[in-house]
Design a protein around this nucleic acid. Structure first.
Length: 208
DNA sequence: CTCCCGATAT
DNA sequence: ATATCAGGAG
């Protein structure tokens, strides 16, 4: 299956979104991990509204490990899936305390064994805090990769493999952030703004 | 596959 | 009213 020229896509994205980065607010790897768990099926804007007070109350993995679960649930409730997320944060932090000395593990294999942490979360955290290249396949990356004809798959792991094959390794993290920004601002799920898309002339799905 | 689940845009 | 939002687990 043919697809648009990758070099052109990368160049256009660089011009449109230079230095695109994570929109979640955080100071430490642990904070980014918590924020990313909270971001599942929820806008980053809403996560950023909850995390300042949360991170002021809970400083370390041990603090989250020892938190009252119902209190934690209420504190993160606006992000949705709050029972699952609170439990994930707590069990996750307990394992970080017990098995990793309170530090977020630094490899993908270790990260994905943590409860509530899948490849999307692991790749995002490792890319940001350890500069380990990885494709972050979230809802935006999945949608744009398909619209651009860069993959035919729906399974996030297969999409990740397709994109890793197409994109130079050193660009994986930046490319993910750029696609996500483009997905949020222009190539939106419900009403894509093809008329102001920098990729419209080479996008198989463009209506402009 | 289903379930978790509140907030916002359309 | 309903689709969607920086997903992951059972």
């Amino acid at each position: 299956m043919s697809h648009p020229p990758i070099e052109t896509i990368l160049k256009r994205l660089d011009e449109a979104y230079p230095g695109a980065t994570c929109a979640l607010n955080y100071q430490t790897p642990l904070q980014l991990l918590i924020a990313t768990i909270l971001s599942a099926q929820c806008t980053d804007e809403r996560v950023n509204k909850v995390t300042p007070s949360l991170f002021q109350e809970y400083k370390t993995a041990r603090d989250f490990a020892e938190a009252d679960l119902e209190t934690l649930q209420e504190e993160i409730r606006p992000t949705g899936f709050y029972k699952n997320k609170a439990k994930a944060i707590q069990t996750c932090c307990r394992r970080i305390v017990e098995e990793y000395g309170g530090e977020v593990p630094s490899t993908l294999e270790e990260m994905v064994t943590l409860p509530g942490v899948g490849r999307k979360t692991a790749n995002l955290v490792l890319g940001e805090t350890h500069h380990i290249p990885g494709i972050v396949v979230d809802t935006h990356v999945r949608r744009l990769a398909k619209r651009l004809g860069l993959t035919q798959h729906d399974d996030p792991e297969k999409i990740e493999q397709d994109l890793m094959r197409l994109i130079p390794r050193e660009r994986w993290t930046l490319f993910s952030h750029q696609l996500i920004h483009h997905g949020r601002q222009v190539c939106k799920a419900r009403k894509p703004a093809c008329d102001r898309c920098v990729l419209k002339d080479l996008c198989p799905s463009s209506t402009a």
